[in-house]
């Protein structure tokens, strides 16, 4: 009998996609743990309970990113955040958040398999992103550890600037191939 069991969590929609040749390299950041966190930081205990678990306060400035240890926390909305954990770390963190929050009005959701993160590395990242997104990527208005939710062509994306040149782009699983194809073509067109 054929053994049909396989590890579903290790399948990516980007398996087999060919990286472009040009001024920007594309690579999938595999198996990042992702947690969507919602709650009210303006009143009640939510903010301080979460702070005690994460090691710091969630970012309250719109469209910014903070790092605590190996956790990266993105502002998604005034009452919504995204937490990136190392591979496999999301389950334990979710348990600890839920245990600490108890009955506090909040929501902790595992969205690890809902999104895919594409790493863009290279000096032309800003120009490639500008081919499909209307945000201003000039260094005077988009800086390191700033993030923004927008759309790249038809794909809803979360763009995170890592340092002066590099970006991570998070996209929904079902849009990953579309986004990769668009980015790869933009990179190769610019190189041509």
């Amino acid at each position: 009998m054929v053994n049909t069991t396989f590890d579903v969590s290790k399948i990516s929609p980007l398996d087999g996609m060919v990286p472009p040749v040009g001024g920007v390299s594309l690579r999938e950041k595999s198996y990042v743990g992702k947690i969507n966190l919602r709650g009210n930081v303006e009143s009640g205990d939510f903010g301080h309970i979460v702070e005690s678990v994460l090691g710091g306060f969630v970012p309250t400035t719109p469209n910014t990113v903070v790092h605590y240890g190996d956790l990266t926390i993105f502002w998604l909305g005034p009452d919504e955040w995204l937490i990136h954990t190392p591979e496999g770390g999301q389950g334990d963190l979710i348990d600890r958040l839920r245990a600490a929050l108890g009955d506090t009005h909040s929501a902790v959701t595992d969205v690890s398999d809902y999104f895919v993160v594409i790493e863009m590395r290279g000096t032309d990242c800003r120009d490639v992103l500008a081919r499909g997104c209307s945000l201003d990527f000039h260094p005077r208005s988009f800086v390191a550890d700033q993030c923004a939710q927008s759309h790249f062509s038809h794909a809803n994306v979360l763009i995170h600037q890592i340092n002066d040149t590099d970006f991570d782009v998070q996209v929904r699983w079902t849009y990953a191939q579309y986004l990769w194809g668009f980015l790869a073509e933009a990179v190769e067109n610019m190189a041509a």
Binding site: P62, N63, G77, L135
Partner: peptide
């Protein structure tokens, strides 16, 4: 009010 100036398409 949170994100600032953005394109109409968003």
């Amino acid at each position: 009010p949170w994100c600032g100036d953005r394109d109409l398409t968003e």
